[in-house]
Amino acid sequence: MFVKFEELKSVIKKALLNAGLSEEQAEICSEVHAQSSRDGVESHGLNRVPRFIDYVNKGWVDLNSEMELVNARGFMEHYDGGLGIGIVNAKKASKRAVELAKEHGLGLVTLSNTTHWMRGGTYAWDTVEDGFIGINWTNTESSMPVWGSKKPTIGNNPICIAVPYKDRPFVLDMAISQYSYGKLEVTRLAGKELPYPGGFDKDGNLTSVPGDIEESLRILPIGYWKGSGFAIALDLMASILSKGRTAADMDREGKGSCTGCSQVFIAIDPYVFSTKEETEKIAEGLINQVKNAERIDPNKEITYPGEGVLARRKKALTEGVHVDDSVWEEVKKL
């Protein structure tokens, strides 16, 4: 079914207020959840609200906590998230990175002891819409087997990279698994299979059936062993720079998805060494080559990361935001 964006946001906000969030917290979080569904990332939009409220009820998210500055050195700052609301913490951290970049040309903020930020692309879009290159990532509890193993031992550690380009920025938002567990859930709820194999079933066979991957917990890393190595690198950098938890630490504590995680937010001024016109000309050369590449399917346009989001956003604001019927009814009752 499809609902208007404002109605979606209103229903989510009501559920969050009922869960004990303040007016300001509920406004920020409902906006982000609704925007995620609007942009086609349903798994971290409406669908994630019941789990977030469950974590609040379990005491895994501290509604009274605010992130605090721990240390600062030049363009780098480190904050403790105090197990506060992940969206609120990440919004503040990414904004602070931009402020540092305005002063130094580059801003780097690390955040330890925080909670799930929902859609990581939210903060990359915020940064690029402020005119800066954005890079942000988070570690997670173990959700993917390290290459050559059978059981989850590393996180799928989503990373986002955004680069300004006219009114159509490049925004890459991806997990280090071929598909996130959220994407598996959305595909399963829709009664569909994945377009490409996304993991192994319990018998060790590659499969496109999302439920079989969810059962085995053997999600496939991007690039096979390369993605596995990249996931480890992202975890090490996030946890070391923030003096925070690794996947191994979160596994031992066992408090669900991303509770106590470590995050990094980087903002870079793209015009430090060149003008806006020069940077756009540089980007245009590559983007034109990408857009004009010979198509496998003549009827299917080639797009770069970010274009699809803008198209889905435009469509959702005129035709309504797609929501899963059962999830919609569940959230309305919260």
Rank of each mutant, 00 (worst) to 15 (best):
C258R: 15
D62S: 05
V272P: 00
S37P: 09
V309N: 04
G320E: 02
V41T: 11
P221L: 10
S274G: 14
Q263K: 11
I232Q: 04
G199M: 07
K281R: 14
W60K: 00
N157K: 11
I12N: 01
T110I: 12
I159L: 14
L17M: 10
G198N: 10
E277M: 06
Q35C: 09
E31F: 15
K300E: 12
A247P: 04
V171H: 05
I161N: 02
S242T: 12
E23Q: 13
L17I: 14
Y181Q: 12
H322A: 08
D297T: 03
Y304F: 14
I282L: 10
L334K: 07
W125L: 07
G81D: 00
A233L: 15
V264Y: 06
G155W: 05
H116I: 09
Y181S: 08
G120C: 13
P152M: 06
I159H: 05
L17C: 02
E24Q: 15
D173H: 04
D39H: 10
S239I: 09
Q35D: 14
S36G: 08
P298M: 06
I87F: 02
L334H: 05
Y196R: 14
I282R: 11
K291A: 03
M144F: 06
L111M: 09
S208A: 10
G59F: 00
L184E: 03
N71Q: 13
T275P: 01
V163S: 06
K14M: 04
K13S: 13
T122C: 10
G223I: 14
Q178F: 03
K58W: 04
G256H: 10
I85F: 02
I302E: 03
E307I: 03
V98K: 01
K183F: 04
P164E: 07
G223L: 13
H116G: 08
V163C: 09
W225N: 10
E330D: 10
V327A: 12
I12K: 02
R245P: 00
K183N: 08
F5Q: 05
Y196N: 10
R312D: 02
S143E: 04
V128W: 10
A267L: 11
P169Y: 07
I232Y: 02
R312N: 03
N156D: 15
S216C: 06
G308F: 05
D324S: 01
E141H: 15
G198Q: 06
M174P: 08
D203A: 11
I282H: 09
V32T: 07
I296H: 02
L189V: 03
K4E: 14
R312F: 00
C29Y: 04
M118C: 12
I161Y: 04
G227T: 09
K276C: 05
P221W: 09
S142T: 13
I222M: 13
F273Y: 14
E24C: 01
G244D: 07
L83D: 00
P298H: 06
K332L: 07
S239C: 09
N156P: 05
R48S: 08
L234M: 11
R38M: 15
E129S: 15
D62E: 12
E294T: 13
T303F: 01
L334W: 03
A248Y: 12
L106K: 08
G84S: 05
